[in-house]
Amino acid sequence: MKALKLKKEDLYAYLESLKSYGELWGPVKRGERYAYARLVNVREVALQALRTILPPKKFFVPPRFNMFRYSEDRYTEAFEDVKPRVLFGLHPCDIHGLMILDELFLERFPDPYYKKRREATAIIGLSCIPDDKCMARSTNTHAVEGGFDLAFNELGEEYLVWVGSSLGDDLVRLNLDLFNEEIDAQDLQKYLEWRRKRDSRYKLNFDLTGMPDIMELSWDSDLWQELADKCLACGACSMVCPTCNCYNIRDVSDLSLESGVRERHWDSCMNKEYALVAGGHNFREARAERLKLYYTHKLKAFITEYGKPSCVGCGRCIDTCPVNINVAEVIRALKGQEVKV
């Protein structure tokens, strides 16, 4: 991996030049929160944004999109016209989230809808200093070594810019004059210092080793019912989770009744009908069972399968759940600590 430097004062100029590759998107202020939006004016970018309401998954699997158009019995692929675009400002946890989605959507039976959008998108990371809801250090997703084209690391008055792919190299060359290729020992010192500072700011630190065993032993715990009594089953936790990928399909007919679309939209295992099959049997009727599934997926199943949790520690569930059910509280409860839930 190659490293370069960019003066902070040159950031806007560089962002502007990225537009020659494609649409530029980045975090902007949305009320008191943030959301990824098209950066028509690069100065609108919210560099201080820690977490956006929705994770970047919305770019690759939009909440609702059409898979097919059908007419009588014939199906036609309904690919949206995906233009090249640059996503700027992804923090390491979100890049890890994308890498998890890549494993789900690009490995066995690649999902062409995801793939097409993914291939058209350049990813530019941005370092961050955590707040009290970040727990990426516990999930070991606080740093990235891949999964991006460029990654900007704040370093005093400059950004250290990691080039992670050949596309990243192309992007640098869009405005090479802005970059400094001279990296010296001082930069290393600054970088190490910055890392120490970042690591020291994590308020949520959990030891997740053996989490599958703990989950297994908690299978019949009262905890799930206690959580279920409080859970609103609103599904917001799934919507904002960077690695929740469940969806439903629904055929929506045109008024002509002869044609229509096969639509795909986000689903959540918090939805009562999540495991309902034709004939009326519901494999996960109880809310407690569905909550258990959610956290089994985050803290057990994925570790068993891929050796890492499918929680990337972004803190969105902590920031979102109105009744304070989130991955941190569940970990605490599973580990026998007093919780607010």
Binding site: F105, Y274, A275
Partner: peptide, 24 residues
């Protein structure tokens, strides 16, 4: 076994049981 499925290829998530997908 039977489960709800929307994709058959391990994408839609509905047939997940622990770390496996019923469909795969």
């Amino acid at each position: 076994l039977e489960r709800r499925m929307h994709c058959g290829i391990g994408k839609c998530g509905h047939c997940a049981i622990g770390s496996i997908y019923t469909c795969l």
